[in-house]
Design a protein around this nucleic acid. Structure first.
Lengths: 222, 222
DNA sequence: TTGCGTATTCAACACTTGTTGAATACGCTG
DNA sequence: CAGCGTATTCAACAAGTGTTGAATACGCAA
């Protein structure tokens, strides 16, 4: 099929756009730069994807379904394997984070760029509200529901604020700015997702328990 | 003095640039848009600040010194008021976060835009390593030192990874994307810094203790 | 008032941007 | 081979970009 051959250039455009958008943002990348870097004519991007904004959305959506399925599967598996009381906070957070690392383990370096792009969009006051909700909110609410059950008595207020902390810690990790490398003098590497999650999981789980468990002291003053 | 009158237009350019850069990023804002929004001629920005990049840096640096002094002061005050054992983890985190809220309390709405700009830069793989370290690393290392003393026996590895989690949660909050507003159905407002810190402080403090306190179980597997 | 330095405007430059329509090449079916 | 649909290139466009140099206005000193 002709489709087989064309996927080559078409996907090269997507791959390059993914990397450059993640690094420089939407306005920091020109179609010509993408085309040059993909060794492709400028007009080809427009031919395949239409407007520049459509290309941006195409990149954003390309891997979203797979990622959501992978995380939803992880959540359901941990729920299935848990007893009648349901999974622990740690297990839920683990299901939330580890698939992001598995995606990297596929050997496809593009996943790193894609996750950095998600971080860019999620942290942007302009793109964030416009693009994140439609693709990711359903799944996020499933995770929050699971956490609600694991933390009986927790108020929605506390749950959402805690999720905000989790989302922030994750976003900065996905952005891979390398700042922690410099701060730590090289002992921590922001490219090491596994190490990041190894530390993030107990950190976040303890945070949820501290804020959301009503019996213990230390809940935020109202 | 002529300087008094000119500060008006010059600072209007800085104010507008601050707001637009925070919302759309460096490449998403044109000098003409800044000039129009500031009701000023295009060439005036170049006259006062030189290249576009210089204007960007001027915006970035304008409030940095004040912010650093304010946070350093908060840290030293909490150290002074603590006993010989030094301040608790909560007190240190509080000194790290609350000045960001006080800055807002000055009534100067520009602080909100400035903090969103810091979030943009800190989360950017392009700008982050280039601009954050020179202005903010010294102070961050002072806070980490204080945390090291409050958490005896903690490894540097764990301390830096925990700080990364704190920095991420803070960054997403400063970005004010409004995503938590939508997720929570309106009960949480990302513009409410005080509520954000009320929840972030116990959350992060518990995370530090969980990961960095060597006696307790649950430290990340090595 | 006349000067003078700073602030501000005006006009224009060379260059890059996204996008498009026509022209060409490719790969398959008949 | 011819025919056809898709993929790809080429050339060009109007609009917008940052930047600059000359011209003008302003505010104060002498």
């Amino acid at each position: 099929m002709t489709v087989a051959r064309n996927r080559s250039k078409r996907e090269r455009i997507l791959d390059v756009a993914e990397e450059l958008f993640a690094l420089h943002g939407y306005d920091g990348v020109t179609l010509r730069r993408i085309a040059t870097s993909a060794r492709v004519d400028v007009a080809l991007a427009s031919y395949h994807f239409g407007k520049k904004l459509d290309l941006f959305k195409a990149v954003f959506e390309r891997r979203a379904a797979y990622l959501n399925e992978s995380r939803r599967e992880a959540l359901q598996r941990c729920q299935r394997e848990a007893g009648v009381e349901g999974p622990s906070v740690e297990q839920i957070i683990e299901a939330f984070l580890r698939p992001l690392e598995l995606a990297q383990e596929t050997g496809d370096a593009g996943w790193r760029h894609y996750l950095a792009l998600i971080a860019y969009i999620n942290n942007s006051p302009y793109w964030g509200p416009k693009m994140m909700s439609s693709l990711f909110d359903d799944l996020v609410l499933e995770f929050i529901d699971a956490l609600r059950k694991a933390l009986p008595g927790a108020s929605d207020d506390n749950l959402y604020w805690c999720y905000n902390n989790l989302s922030g810690a994750l976003t900065l990790t996905l952005a891979q700015t390398g700042r922690i490398d410099k701060l730590s003098g090289g002992t921590c590497r922001s490219a090491d997702f596994q190490a990041a999650y190894d530390h993030m999981i107990p950190f976040v789980a303890a945070g949820f328990r501290q804020v959301c468990a009503p019996a213990t002291a230390g809940a935020p003053a109202e």
